[in-house]
Nucleic acid binder design. Structure first.
Length: 226
DNA sequence: ATTTGATCATCT
DNA sequence: AGATGATCAAAT
């Protein structure tokens, strides 16, 4: 039975071993070991699983704007899956910058940086399974293939072009093949500054980049030969 | 207000 | 049923 670890992993292999040691355990078992109360459901605690697993992997706690494991350049993503290993939700990547984007490129983007190296941890997510009975799956260390990065780059450039051109409010989640832009805020009243259609400052919903399931599904399937 | 962790729940 | 737009909590 693994224990929470406060120390960041010295290298990627150590991180992967820590993650592999969690596979097969239920959320109730890990919550008890971490002395974290198990919520009845995730309705009012949507990021609970991510925070729980961070404690066992030695991620720098808190909400700092950087990778989970900056020393080794790895980002942690838990991903809810159904009984056939397919993703149940899109995957949040990062907040979209709506101003100050003159000269930003894919190469220097937060999206590319965050997705450069990802530790994926699948977790049973079907709502009919009580939260405490859901099992941790086998982890996967991943970097985008050249083909995957090209897909991501094209979507990112399309979406950023619209943002820079003041068309952020015309963007819907249907834009993009594998990467989409959707609201990412406390609620529909939280606003942030952006560029309007005439180049003027406007207030609009904060947005985030999300990976579509059509991207993460095959990514997991390929690894687990589903 | 913003970024972290994401999933909820309504609509199509 | 699945996806889109909306939402929740903690840390900073």
């Amino acid at each position: 039975m693994p224990n929470p670890i406060a120390t960041p992993p010295a290298d990627e292999h150590t991180l992967l071993e820590r993650a592999q040691a969690l596979a097969g355990y239920t959320l109730a078992e890990l919550a008890a070991r971490a002395n974290l109360p198990l919520p009845a459901n995730l309705k009012c605690d949507k990021g609970w699983i991510g925070v729980l697993l961070e404690r066992f992997l030695g991620a720098s706690a808190g909400s700092k704007p950087e990778q989970d494991f900056p020393d080794i350049g790895v980002e942690l993503k838990t991903i809810p899956i159904d009984d056939r290993g397919r993703p149940l939700e899109t995957t949040f990547v990062s907040v979209a910058p709506l101003t100050g984007n003159s000269g930003v490129t894919w190469e220097s983007s937060h999206v590319r940086h965050k997705l450069a190296r990802v530790l994926w941890i699948p977790v049973e997510g079907l709502r009919e399974i009580p939260l405490g009975e859901r099992h941790i799956g086998t982890p996967l260390i991943w970097s985008p293939s050249p083909e995957e990065e090209e897909l991501l780059r094209r979507d990112w450039e399309e979406l950023m072009d619209l943002i820079v051109l003041g068309k952020v409010e015309s963007i819907t989640a249907r834009h993009g093949e594998v990467l989409q832009l959707r609201p990412k805020g406390a609620n529909s009243k939280a606003l942030t500054q952006a560029i309007g259609e005439f180049g003027q400052p406007i207030m609009t919903l904060p947005r985030g980049f999300y990976l579509k399931k059509t991207f993460t599904g095959p990514l997991l399937a390929r690894h687990f030969h589903l």
